[in-house]
Simulated assay, not measured.
Amino acid sequence: MRNFSRGDVFAAACPSRQILQHVTSRWGGLVLIALREETLRFAQLRRRIDGISERMLAQTLQVLEGDGLILRKDYGEVPPRVDYTLTPAGREISARVFALSDWIEKNLPELLALTPDAAPQTVQ
């Protein structure tokens, strides 16, 4: 493994670009936000993140675990019991992703008003 003093997200070969892509992907950010305050099981995550398929959730969890942002604890029980929690780095980045999503939610009416082609949508 190469030793980096700092990443360069603008460099095509820098691993920071791949991690940024995972964190800001459609599902990666939502998984990080969902795990922000508690440890959850797979089914709990799937219920929390409306619209995510089992396959996509499994892939997303695997990628974020590979990036060192999520810990997976398998209890080796039948039926399977697996918990997911954030690592210290995962907690830090989750807080930042949450801050961004919170800003978007708070400013949604203004953002939609600025989008000329935005169709009216129900906000929950």
Rank of each mutant, 00 (worst) to 15 (best):
K73R: 11
S25C: 12
R72K: 14
A43E: 15
L61E: 12
K73Y: 11
L57W: 00
R41P: 08
R55W: 01
Q59S: 11
L35W: 07
R55F: 00
H22T: 09
W27G: 02
I52A: 12
L64N: 05
L71V: 15
G28S: 11
T60C: 07
R36A: 08
R55H: 06
Q44Y: 03
A34F: 06
L57F: 02
G28N: 04
R55P: 01
R55V: 04
G29Q: 09
G68P: 13
D50K: 12
L35Q: 11
L32S: 12
H22R: 13
G29V: 05
E54P: 01
A58R: 14
Q62I: 01
L57V: 03
L32A: 09
W27P: 02
L64E: 02
R48L: 12
R55S: 10
R26Y: 14
Q62A: 13
G29N: 11
L69Y: 09
A43I: 06
R26S: 15
V23G: 10
L57C: 00
Q59L: 08
I49C: 01
S25P: 12
E54K: 03
A43C: 08
A34P: 12
E37I: 03
R47V: 13
L45I: 01
Q44N: 02
S53R: 08
H22L: 13
E37A: 14
Q44H: 02
V31Y: 08
R55N: 04
T60M: 09
E37T: 14
E54H: 02
R72M: 09
R26A: 15
T60H: 03
I33C: 10
I33K: 14
L69S: 06
T24S: 14
V23M: 14
L40S: 09
L35T: 05
L45C: 08
G51S: 11
E37K: 12
A43D: 09
Q44K: 13
R36I: 03
V31P: 08
A43T: 14
I70R: 00
T39W: 07
G51K: 07
Q44L: 08
Q44C: 12
Q44F: 03
R55G: 00
L45D: 01
S25L: 10
V63C: 03
V63E: 07
Q59K: 11
L45A: 09
V31K: 08
T60E: 00
F42T: 03
V31R: 10
L57E: 03
R46P: 05
G28E: 10
T60I: 02
A34M: 08
M56T: 04
S53A: 01
L69N: 04
K73S: 12
L35F: 03
R41F: 10
M56L: 14
L71G: 04
A43G: 06
L61T: 05
D67M: 10
G29S: 07
G66V: 10
G51D: 02
L40Q: 11
V31M: 12
E65W: 02
